[in-house]
Structure formats: C-alpha cells, structure tokens
Amino acid sequence: MTRPVYVHDLDGLDRHVRAIRAALPPRTELLYAVKANPEPDVLRTLAPVVDGFETASRGELRRLAKVLPGRAPAAYAGPGKTDGDLAAALAAGVARIHVESPAELRRLGALAAAAGVPARVLLRVNLPLEVAGASLVMGGRPSPFGMDPADAVECARRPPPGIEVHGVHAHLASGLDAPLAGAVAAAVVRWSVAEIGAHEVDVGGGMAVDYAQPAARFDWAGYGRALGDILDGHPGLRLRVEPGRSVTVYCGAYLTEVVDVKRSYGEWFAVVAGGTHHLRTPAAKGHAHPFTVHPRPDAAGPRTDGGPVTVVGQLCTPKDVLSRSADVGPIGVGDVLVFAMSGAYAWNISHRDFLLHEPPEFRTGDPHRLAAEWAARPVGS
C-alpha cells in the first residue's frame, strides 16, 4: 500500500498564474502569499511570473532564501513581530515591511537607525469598511490586525527616524468575489490617498475560492478592470495585490487509499489512510472537501451502495472528517480517492504530529494519472 501523497500540477499552476498576471493592469504588482503553500516546487514555478513574495515569518524568509537565493521578499507582514523578526526582515532586504502598530513602527525605526539602513514600510490600516458577503472579516472591528485609521495618519505624518512611509496595506477580508474585491480596493485607495497621500497601496488578497464548485474561478479579468479604473483616477499610484489560496489551491491534490468500508446505524463510512492530520482544510473551513473516486478493478471487499458516505481518516477523534454525504457512487476497499483543491492551506496547516503517523509523500505531475496507475496495482501493493 502506498502512503498518501500530495501531487502538484506545476504546468497547470504556471498557466493559472500567467493568466492572473495577464488580467492585472499596468502599475499593479502581483505578490504571492507564501503562507498559502510554501512547497519549494511551487515557489520555483511562481518565481518567473509574480513580482514578488509576501512573507510572514522568519521561517518563510529562510525558505525563500534557500529555494530562491538572491531574491529578496517583496513584503514582510503579520502581527506580533519581535525585534528579531524585524531585524531579519531588514537583513533580508525586504522591499516593504507591513507595520501593524505605532509601537512596532517605533521599534523598527530604532533597529533601522542602529543598522544604518532605512526601513521602507506600508502601514497596515484597519479601515471601517462594509464587506458583506465575505467569508472571513479581519477589519472594521476590534482586531489584532493593523492600526486604527487615526493612528495610521499620525504615524504617516510623524514617522520615527529610520522609517520611510511609502503607503498603506489593508487586508480586510477573505472570500471576496471580484465585484466586492474591486469595491474594497477602491475604498482603501480613496482613504489612503486622501488621508496620508499614499503613492503605494497594497489592497491584500482574499479572492474567493468555492470548494463546493471546484470548476468555479475568481473573475480575474473583471477584477483587473476594476483595478484599472482605480489607477486611471490616480496617475501616480502603484497597486499591489497578494493572493495566496486563489493562486495555488487548484494545482494540488491529495491522494489516498480506502482501507475500510462499513455501515454504522444505517450510514456508510469510508476510512482512508491519512486524514485531517495531512489535509486540515476541510476541518478548518468546515466543508465537505471535493473528491473523485478511482475504483480498484480487483477489489473484493465491501462497497458502499452509491449513496451518501462520510469519508474519515485514521485519527482517534470524530473530527477527523474529510467529506460528508458525498454522492460519488460506490466506494470500496482499495479504491483511490483524489481530493482536489488541496494546493493551499493543506499540509502546511495540518496538525501533523497527532498520533505520529507517517507524513504524506510529495510528487509533481497529473494527479488523476497517478491515481489511475495506483488503482491499477494489485490490492495491498
């Protein structure tokens, strides 16, 4: 039996990110948020296309330095930065440090002055915008993310020594469709230009990904037109966007084998090798993760009746659920399941040490071709 495996379709990723880049207007920089998927092959594939990488930890700085030596990150973000984090960002030559509070700005200024290098920053602002329809809201309410608008204005007007304020960063919500993302970007730019005279604005990411409709895609062309309209009204402005999930989610799949099938109080369960300690996305988002079945022709064990089934993993908790009530046809022992849309916030956010199971393998290529080859092997191989 093969261990569960993540398969990254790098050719598909390259096509997808090039289409995103082509949809964005001039004077718009495309950054990739490394937190979504920091796998080395993914970073190498994106490097020739994106304008830079957004990092949020010293670990991500080290990963970029190892995988892409000589390529300084475009941004360093996140709350709770220690002096060590800020010093590491300065040493790495990060183009823009996103500052979350006045106190962080003062500490960064002292470090920059001591090092004799300027700290070029964007002020992360928690603006009171309406984002109805978003799946996750991080702004417009009390939050650890960013500073209140009045504090940001004061920081921009009176930055401490060692600081160069270049503009504003605002990542206010996730799960935005293109019209809402465009409206949020326009509101952020209006405030940034009017209140602090910003000539650079990072409007964040948060582009919607619909796990219930795997074929759906964010309307990058429509979003690009909205950004173009914003830029037409501000000739000296540069925009940045920093998507993560919406860039890589479609390029990754998690493949695993069914090890048991059973009924419990009239309901079918399929138990697979692995589980949410490998693929935490469905538990984190509370959804039924989309999957397809590659049946094993020589399977002789029990099979579900083709109706609803709950797919679970090997952990000693009832929360180890990958998908519920999926109507995907009969499932039997030995079948290979391909969980699509596993290219972001998957292995890298999983509670991988719970029960100390073996980690998954990692490969590149076509996940369905690999699944078909796997299912064609004799049972137990």
Rank of each mutant, 00 (worst) to 15 (best):
V272W: 04
V272A: 05
A273E: 12
G275P: 08
G275Y: 01
T276K: 00
T276V: 15
H277P: 00
H277L: 02
H277E: 01
H277C: 07
H277A: 10
H278G: 05
L279D: 03
L279M: 06
L279S: 05
R280C: 00
T281P: 00
T281Y: 14
P282N: 02
P282D: 11
P282G: 07
A283M: 02
A284I: 00
G286A: 09
H287T: 12
H287A: 08
H287Y: 14
A288S: 15
F291R: 06
H294N: 07
H294K: 13
R296I: 00
R296T: 15
R296M: 15
P297T: 09
D298S: 14
D298H: 11
A300N: 09
G301Q: 10
R303D: 02
T304W: 06
D305I: 02
D305E: 09
D305G: 07
G306N: 05
G307N: 08
P308V: 00
V309G: 11
V309S: 08
V309L: 06
T310V: 11
T310A: 11
T310K: 07
V312K: 15
G313V: 02
G313Y: 04
L315A: 14
C316V: 10
C316F: 13
T317W: 10
T317D: 15
T317Y: 13
P318H: 04
K319P: 00
V321I: 11
L322Q: 05
R324L: 01
A326K: 01
A326Q: 03
D327I: 09
D327M: 13
D327P: 00
V328W: 01
V328G: 11
P330Q: 14
G332N: 12
G332V: 04
V333D: 10
V333W: 09
G334K: 03
G334L: 03
D335V: 05
L337D: 03
V338C: 13
V338A: 12
V338F: 12
F339K: 08
A340C: 09
A340W: 07
A340P: 01
M341Q: 15
M341V: 04
M341N: 09
S342F: 03
G343S: 05
A344M: 05
A344F: 08
Y345E: 14
W347C: 07
N348M: 04
I349Q: 12
I349V: 15
S350R: 02
S350C: 08
H351F: 03
H351Y: 07
H351G: 05
R352N: 08
F354Q: 09
E358H: 13
E358N: 10
P360E: 04
P360G: 06
F362C: 02
R363C: 04
R363W: 06
R363L: 13
T364I: 08
T364S: 12
P367A: 14
P367C: 11
H368Q: 13
R369K: 13
R369M: 04
R369N: 04
R369V: 12
